[in-house]
Amino acid sequence: MQLPRHWRLNKQRYALEGEICTHCQAKIFPPRDICPDCGEAANTPLAFSGRGQVYSFTKVNQPPASHEEQAPYTVALIKLDEGPTVTAQLTDLDEDQQSVEIGIPVEMVTRKLYSDGDLGLLIYGYKFRPLIEHA
């Protein structure tokens, strides 16, 4: 069980908290403290909107032991509206997963990522679902 490892990333997992570079305004997720664009220090927190588009995707049929209970599942690269790309699972899909295509709009939701270790620590975090048009 890796308690501190997961606890320290709560803000990223639950709220997509990244950073903004105050020098060149680059928006950064995951946080990395040195701006990849200009090389200056970047540690001003920024909460991302959680909206984005599917940049690429695939279906995992043979999962690692850590994620066996969820298989099969779809993982994707999501290009966030603010710029960065993240790796995450897609969720709330049609049974045949036919609705997934490159370019579809998605939004972040909080779901169980997996259970860690014999003591059953449940790790929650971001997944993405096809965007639901809100009234």
Partner: peptide, 26 residues
């Protein structure tokens, strides 16, 4: 890969290759 931001989501090495290949073919 990145343990905190890739593996945690259940990505496998085959899935990583697939994400690249899918985009390439697209």
């Amino acid at each position: 890969g990145d343990a905190d931001y890739e593996a945690i989501h259940g990505v496998t090495t085959a899935a990583q290759a697939a994400l690249v290949m899918q985009r390439y073919m697209h």
